[in-house]
Amino acid sequence: MSWVTKTLTSSLGRKLIMAVTGLSLIAFLVVHCAINACIFLNDGGHTFNEAAEFMAHNLFIRISEVGLMAGLLIHIVDGLMLWKSNNEKRPVKYAVVKGEANSTWYSRSMGLLGSLLLIFLVVHLRHFWVVSRFTDVISGGQKTLFQEMVEVFANPIPVVLYVVGCLSLAYHLLHGFQSAFQTMGWNHPKYTPFVKCLGAGFSILIPLIFAAMPIAMHLGWIK
């Protein structure tokens, strides 16, 4: 086994993969959130459609999209593998576990939160990514991406699903953000309090903005 494979398949290496892919997904969330927040300008989706159009045709963005998808898949597969192997490390479980005495419920439930996010992602990608990339509904000019959003969120079921997805994202980030820094070895009395604070702010703000989108559209605040 080469030293690279040996390192990346060790317990520390597999966590490093989770941290690096996780942080790249966090960076993606910033871009995704900023562009989608254009709908709050309430200009009939004009600015949002222009931004979406740019994202769909810019070469750099399209190449990054491949990297993003690869990162997402690696994060999911590595996460599931870690969950399985960690679970096997305690073949006989405790009869009584007082987890709340030593850790937060969401830090112990990253696999569950990640699985909820995965279910949300499948539906979310089907709603928008598949429609805009693999059909000619948007590119053929039948509808704009904004109109597609309005149609999807007219139905209350996707709205509820998206809000649950955002809630899972918030808790997943609340642990994952600062955890990624710890895994990469970036724990320092000067910077760690800042990282934790930034992580908490990010974990609340970004999902809140995302959750506001389907709600605002469903209630007709944004047209």
Binding site: S11, N86, K89, G99, S107
Partner: peptide
């Protein structure tokens, strides 16, 4: 032994 999830337990 398992890997670390940084729960802090």
């Amino acid at each position: 032994f398992g890997a670390c999830t940084n729960t802090g337990a």
